[in-house]
């Protein structure tokens, strides 16, 4: 019996930490809505690594005399405005106060604040975009186009200005500039509710975490049974001492 009591104590000490953890997370999960846990986002890099969520990554940076566009994997930031674009950005130019962005099979016109003015589609993906004087030139592989003055239509190459276009190319970045650009990109995040739920189930630490939490749950059941057994044993022994006959 002494061995059982000894092991019960040691197990109890270890399990106590998990009892507190499970009780706390359980209470929090019971009040998810009141505490607005699903609305609260966590963007801790270490935690996101546990979930396999990558950190924001800069693909390219394009600049005009007055503006800078940072293209990340999932988002594009124009100065300080997010302008999420699904396809890659191939260039950015500025003409008559309007920003013209080449993205996939389209030319997108934006205000300097990043508001969408209009989009014009091309017959093939835009490979490069540039400026010849103040005219926007779009290179779609075999065909080159000029954006008309009203910026409503792409006109074929016979109307190309004589000046050689100054093509927009990604800016070469030093490590410090790349880090600065990365900081502009929105960080990925995960709802606090998800983290607490996964902490409660052990899933936060992968499948091994689930198995460990299963073992802890079994240990809790064993502790409850051994605790009950010890209590009965002590009661019986106390009664035996009081009534020796």
């Amino acid at each position: 019996m002494k061995h059982v009591i000894k092991w019960h104590r040691y197990f109890g000490l270890v399990i106590a930490f998990f009892v507190v953890l499970l009780a706390t997370t359980g209470i929090l999960l019971n009040h998810t809505e009141e505490l607005e846990l699903s609305q609260q986002k966590i963007s801790n890099p270490l935690l996101l690594t546990l979930y396999g969520i990558p950190a924001p990554e800069v693909i390219a940076v394009f600049t005009t005399p007055n503006h800078r566009l940072v293209r990340g994997k999932q988002a594009a930031i124009l100065d300080n405005h997010q302008i999420t674009a699904p396809s890659p950005v191939n260039g950015l130019v500025e003409a008559n106060g309007i920003l013209v962005l080449a993205s996939g099979e389209s030319v997108i016109l934006l205000t300097p604040d990043g508001e969408l003015i209009d989009s014009i589609t091309t017959s093939a993906p835009v490979e490069r975009i540039g400026l010849a004087g103040n005219r926007v030139i779009v290179d779609s592989g075999d065909t080159k186009y000029v954006l008309n003055e009203e910026m409503t239509q792409l006109q074929p190459s016979q109307n190309l200005p004589e000046a050689a276009p100054d093509w927009s190319t990604p800016a070469a970045l030093t490590k410090a500039q790349r880090d600065q650009a990365t900081n502009l990109l929105p960080r990925n995040s995960i709802p606090l509710e998800r983290v607490i739920l996964d902490l409660h189930s052990g899933r936060l630490f992968g499948y091994a975490g689930v198995i460990v939490f299963d073992l802890i749950a079994i240990a809790m059941v064993v502790l409850a049974l051994t605790g009950l057994w010890m209590w009965l044993w002590r009661n019986r022994r106390r009664n035996a001492r009081r009534n020796p006959s």
């Binding site: 930031i77 997010q82 999420t84 674009a85 997108i108 502009l184």
Partner: peptide, 14 residues
């Protein structure tokens, strides 16, 4: 850091 990120604007553009 970003001063503002317009989610609505991003959604509309998307």
């Amino acid at each position: 850091m970003m001063r503002s990120i317009s989610v609505t604007r991003a959604a509309l553009l998307l």
